[in-house]
Design a protein around this nucleic acid. Structure first.
Lengths: 195, 195, 195, 195
DNA sequence: GATGAATGAGGGTTCATTCAT
DNA sequence: TATGAATGAACCCTCATTCAT
């Protein structure tokens, strides 16, 4: 339903990020987003089926770029440790460089109702797959423990990074996030190697 | 404002857990909770200042019991490894034994608006403090890496357990959660020992 | 229905005056009045049929005393002018000496719904009758214009005194009301003499 | 917030007058007014900030027209007596010709809570100013007593007219109001001349 | 007589979505 | 395409009154 092309498509999504980051999920009315985007309320419905579709599309577009960039970066590394290290660093730096987006994905979008959360989780799978691949590669190369439960491992990796970023956002970005990457990498690596 | 004691106080909180788990946060109207509790709508306001107060009290009471039970159990263990192992097991088993509560705390209550989230996070601190104490003890006893960042360590521990439980809830409790405890414990312990 | 006797009857009415004057008509809940009177909510319903009955009884009792006192005073005067002068003075001084009561009757009780207003107006007739008698006496004695419309005359007398007192209350009693009596008396007397 | 122009603006205000006159202040729900106006409930909030704003706007618009018409009429008269006579006649006839409006302003709107009453009194000042001007003119021209207290005089004029109209409304308009104008004019004029 | 815990009906307001222009 | 005025469903909370003790 949503037309993925068009200048206004991007305008509206960027406006939504700004409005949600600034006013919060529950105060991000369609009319406010339309105003920020410089279009009429009704115009949003020419590009998105409904508000939920806009929010999912927002997450889809932003996470898609996030994953794509992460993949591009990882492709340049050869050792699994280097890739893993870069993943953590990339996760943190991309969100640190987009504070508004971090607020939206870590805090605000999680206030959406279960139905929408389900669809967002579907989109998130694109990123989780990347993590799965990396873990499988690590196990295959003997870098991680051979009996490591892959699903559990991925939950650990994502859970830790997500928790750290959420804490950073809730601290209103007052401390440098990227500097945590090194430590988090080590913590995770030791965990993954252990079993 | 809210009378923390009384049979009805507990009735209403338990009814709220059931209704929210069954119908979801956004469909948990006060009238529905009152009906489930077997009291009149207005009676809820004799025990809680408003709906938000009911939700915070719910979390406060349930998490309080959760923390208290965890502390009681941990007190019986002596080695830090045993305590840590028990913590993970306790976290998982208490939520597995209360599926409705798990749904409410892992999924539904997170849909609440920022103001309420803040108050819930304050309550959560009671549990995070327990984790902090355990980590400090582990470092002091030389069980964990001496240079381990305590805050980061706690974020790892909570982040991983929270992520695993959330996945379990989203899988609608289809797999046994407690059985994950052993593996999660090892993963975390290795991570914490490493650095 | 209301038992006109009993210490608590008076206690409750006096409490109602205080609460209404202090918090306003719409914030004068039965429970607040009960608390001020030092009785239980339910006790009020032993003395009054319902809240409306309490308010009418309040007005009845207070206006009754007001009229009785006015009549006693007037009985001592002989000339119609002196009586008339005293009436205005008495009207103003009694309200000035009971600021709370003035607030209640001039401002707050007028916010009651039409149904209650009707019953209050019935009670007010007791005072209006006194005015009617005075005007009839004045006409009979040739002190007022022989063609004076008695009803209109009474509306003028009451309308003016009421307006002046209301303005005084709305000015929060910042100026002395009794001092206005002289002027108001003259204004009215001239009006009544004219035609 | 409120768009003071537009066909719907007038529609809604007129509907409010009808509904309040028919059902009373406390039974004049927004949904009832919307239905009478032939618009959706939400439409009212496109033209008025909230219900209170609607009621104040109603009074503002109607009293504004009332004052304007009175001023236009008075401008044609030259003698102060003629102006004064016309004022009373205008006051009575305008309300007699709009029974619904008279009910609303004399009885129903006075049931509103203090906050709203304050705002209504502000609007009323526009009319009281007209009375003040007339009294000042009368004193300047030697038509009224030179020592007449202008504020008291205005309170008398307004108080009497208001009382007479209120009695007329409470008598459900059963007697002709305009016919009272002549007598009221004489009563007031004598009063004002006296002192 | 006195209590006070419990009751439950009732309404102003927001905002995602539509559709005539 | 684009507009934006209009729609209307949905819900938390108050408080007068009751009645078991």
């Amino acid at each position: 339903m949503s037309k993925k092309r068009g200048q206004k498509y991007d305008q509206i999504i960027d406006a939504a990020v700004i409005v949600i980051a600034k006013h919060g999920f529950h105060q991000a009315q369609v009319s406010k987003i339309a105003k920020e985007a410089g279009v009429a309320d009704g115009t949003i419905y020419l590009y998105f089926k409904n508000k939920e579709d806009l929010l999912v599309s927002l997450f889809d577009k932003k996470l898609g770029a996030f994953v794509e960039k992460s993949r591009r970066r990882l492709a340049k590394e050869h050792s699994i440790e280097a890739k893993f290290h870069l993943l953590v660093e990339s996760h943190f730096s991309q969100l640190e460089d987009n504070y508004d987006l971090a607020v939206v994905t870590q805090l605000e979008l999680r206030q959406s109702k279960s139905e929408l959360r389900q669809r967002i989780n579907q989109v998130l799978k694109g990123y989780l797959t990347l993590l799965d691949e990396l873990i499988a590669e690590g196990k295959a190369e003997g870098c991680f423990h051979p009996e490591l439960d892959p699903l559990l491992a991925r939950q650990m990796v994502f859970g830790v990074m997500d928790e750290v970023v959420s804490n950073w956002v809730m601290a209103e970005g007052k401390f440098p996030l990227k500097k945590q990457a090194e430590n988090v990498y080590h913590l995770l690596l030791h965990g993954l190697r252990g079993k």
